[in-house]
Amino acid sequence: MAGGKELTVITFRGIFQEVEEARGMYSDGYRDQSAVVALDGGDMKEMGVEAGHPVHLETASGDVVVAAKLSEEAHPGVAFMPASPWSAQLLSGEVGEDGFLELKMFTVRASSGGGRVTSIEEIEAVIRAP
């Protein structure tokens, strides 16, 4: 898919995600806290995405569908995503020349839609696939 908007994604951890993770990562609660992307209001308008609606995120390494969240702060061109199996699908996994494995920042193509939010079982299936 060539379309979509290019965004710099930065991962973070939030307490409610940590709480759900302690309760178990196969729960809806964990998915609700993890499979989200916080977007800039202007970017959302441009992409035609509304809060709570699915957003398709894609990189050369993989793609996932997560739910959009409106950020209170303005940060055009940047999106924030909880560090989770969902964000991990988008990371390249390549170790840089400086020997460093990038886990916090990457570029995605984001577009509205994409259907249902990806489930953790689907992620496991992708990882298992030959």
Binding site: G24, M25, Y26, S61, G62, A83, S84, P85, A88, Q89, L91, S92, G93, E94, L101, L103, I120, I123, E124, V126, I127, R128
Partner: peptide, 30 residues
């Protein structure tokens, strides 16, 4: 397996893995 990029998690899923842990997680699943 949950924290690392998918490409690395794939290698982990293919490796012969022993998981010792208190709770089920992606690594124990693989």
């Amino acid at each position: 397996a949950a924290a690392l990029p998918a490409a690395i998690a794939k290698k982990l899923a293919k490796a012969v893995t022993v998981a010792i842990g208190s709770h089920r997680n992606m690594t124990t699943d693989f």
